[in-house]
Amino acid sequence: MCAQPSPARQEASSQPPAGGRTVLDDRDIARALTRISHEILERNRGARDLVLLGIPTRGVPLAARIAERIAAVEGYDVPVGSLDVTMYRDDLRLKPARTLLPTEIPQGGIDGKVVVLVDDVLFSGRTIRAALDALNDVGRPSAVRLAVLVDRGHRELPIRADFVGKNLPTSLVERVKVSVAGPDSPDDADAVTIEDATS
C-alpha cells in the first residue's frame, strides 16, 4: 500500500481507469502473475510451507490469483490470507484514524513457514516495513519474501522486492493506479495506469 501517500489510492478502485496511460493491461497482468508464481515455486523448490499474505486492499486478490496458479502447477493449495498494516504505519498519527481492513491469518499460522507478502505497488517501502512489524506480532516465519505487481522506485527505506511483475520507472509527480478485479470489486478491470498528478 505504498503507491502514493495521497488519497489517490482510494480513487484507484473506481473503474475504468479514466485518463492516464495504461502500462499493463489485463493480459500483461495475467502473464506477470504467472511468472511470479513460477518464480516463487522455483525459489522455494515447490509449494511446501508457503503462506501467501496479501496486503489489503489490492494485494489480497493478487495473492489469491498467485495461489490459483500455484495450485494449477503443483496441485497443492497454498494457504492464503491477508495482513492489515494500518496500525503499524509510521504516518498513523498524521491523519485521522483510519478504517481497519481485515487481517486473516490462515489456519496453521505462519510459524516456521515461508511467508510471501503480496502487494500491488512498491514505492517508498514504508508499507512493507509496517507489514514486517505486523508479521512480528503474528508469529515467526522461517523467511519472508515480497512479491509486487509493480515496482515504481523512489524507495525511502532499505527494502527490495523478491518477485516483481514490472519495474516501472516513474517520476514523483506521477501516480500509479492499479485496479484488480476481486471479491470486493468485481467490476474493476485489471489494469495498471500512470497519471500525471500535476495536471
Binding site: 492489515d84 478504517t99 512489524d133 506480532d137
Partner: peptide, 23 residues
C-alpha cells in the same frame, strides 16, 4: 457502524498469540 466494523477486527486479535497492537 464504523465502530462495529472496527470492533470486528479488534476481536480477531483475541485469537492471535500476541494480543497487542501498537496504535
Amino acid at each position: 457502524e464504523l465502530v462495529l466494523t472496527t470492533a470486528e477486527e479488534m476481536r480477531s486479535l483475541a485469537d492471535r498469540p500476541i494480543k497487542k497492537l501498537p496504535a
